[in-house]
Design a protein around this nucleic acid. Structure first.
Lengths: 244, 244
DNA sequence: CGCTATTTTGAGATGGCTCAAGCTATGTGG
DNA sequence: CCACATAGCTTGAGCCATCTCAAAATAGCG
């Protein structure tokens, strides 16, 4: 839960090179990029470190440079739902920092990492002075809208099995690491997390994964899932008719 | 399905006054606003007129000035889901026009109306030249993200009855008209539409509405719903424990 | 090496879906 | 102005996917 206090990042050329490749900064003139980086704070994250909590005043926007962060929300009756995992290079806290008063969700590091951080005021000034940056942010946000719409569609029309298959494939793209016998989803992903990501219960998720494990589609350990047959999972995720 | 061809709107002071109050144009210097309006085309819409279809190249962004538009998507197996209703003053087609290549949904007028329309290129230029406008668009988009997240949360944790109650209350805010015996949702809203908005089936939606009608919570006719007890519906939408 | 978080599995209940059938407004053309 | 067609609505019966609750097995971690 501990973390190093915020500091100004050194003029690290490695960091600059990294940032250049982010969607957020893509195509930005170097001068603007430098200005943006100078305006940022940074913070290293221990596992479990909390970046912000649901309902906190939205005072900053973050870019994850290393590690993984999960963003969750609580329902009225205290059930946690998992909105998304954030990977290196991704923006989070943006909805709040750009338009809202408070954070709509809670952000927690699921593994050690590092973030860049811009205060709301600073980011507003940057956006105003750099239309290119606004355009990038707009593109990112429209992407988020599309993704949310897709999940909404899934959730309202597909059954659990397919939703889980899709979630795993999506996570594989986002956080997959090639292993010799498949693609490892390189995140601590418990049955509970997977369930709250796909809108089902721990029990149903466990049953489905057990079945897939027997069928050789996946292998799984404690909070780790290895996809052994992307093909098989894709069939479940996409096919109309399942050859059960 | 017919509609008047696109023209440049006359310098109508009434229209300007209307636009000034839109979230999109809020706080915009008058000169910028005029420029934006001059750059727009407009089109009147007959009932059933199609603005764009899912998969069409995204060539424009729209603001509805009168009437109602619904935005839908098709699932892989051809089921239609209703993403949202658009009311006067709201923006639609923005996700596509701002970041994507093609429209992710289909927009159809559910009653006669009128839209303003900006070509993608034009809107890009406007955004670039006017940071204030970008900021407004950002705020609108973050609002959309929040709303979608809220629906996702509902869909994954609440049961149908509550989802329908919420949807009705939301529609009442958005398109409600005071009547002497309640609030009329002033849209053609069939059981099927309500079902595809809340992720359920026509049959379940019908059963629930019938029950509510018996209980005096609503009154409904052909594709019309009158909310007679906002209080009762709110209880269903919010309460933990229903006194069934 | 015991504690705790995670996972598995069973058994039973049920909410919501599916399919089938009939009903009722609304509008239309003869 | 009526009869018919159509789109929307209601209701029943049966089923099944998923949830709930309970209990035990397993695996890291300190």
């Amino acid at each position: 839960m501990t973390s190093v206090a915020m500091q100004s990042p050194t003029a690290d050329p490695g960091l600059l090179a990294l940032l250049e490749r982010l969607d957020l900064f893509r195509g930005l003139p170097p001068a603007e990029l430098c200005a943006a980086v100078r305006a940022a704070g940074y913070r290293t994250l221990a596992r479990g470190a909390v970046l912000f909590r649901e309902g906190d005043p939205a005072d900053a926007l973050y870019v994850l440079t290393q590690g993984r962060v999960k963003v969750t929300q609580l329902t009225v009756d205290g059930v946690e739902i998992l909105l998304r995992f954030v990977g290196p290079g991704e923006l989070f806290g943006c909805v709040a920092a750009l338009g809202e008063r408070v954070y709509p969700g809670t952000a927690v590091a699921v593994e050690p990492g590092m973030v860049l951080r811009w205060e709301s005021k600073v980011i507003a000034a940057l956006l105003e002075s750099c239309p290119h940056l606004s355009q990038n942010v707009l593109r990112l946000l429209t992407g988020r809208v599309l993704e949310l719409q897709a999940r909404l569609r899934e959730l309202s029309t597909e059954r659990v099995e397919r939703r889980i298959a899709r979630a795993l494939l999506r996570l594989a793209c986002q956080a997959g690491r090639e292993a010799e016998d498949g693609v490892l989803i390189d995140l601590p992903l418990s049955r509970q997390s997977l369930a709250s990501l796909t809108g089902t219960t721990l029990y149903t998720a466990s049953r489905i994964l057990s079945r897939w494990e027997q069928q050789g589609l996946i292998a799984s350990g404690r909070a780790r899932i290895l996809l052994r047959s992307l093909h098989g999972l894709t069939a479940i995720a996409e096919d109309q008719s399942l050859d059960h």
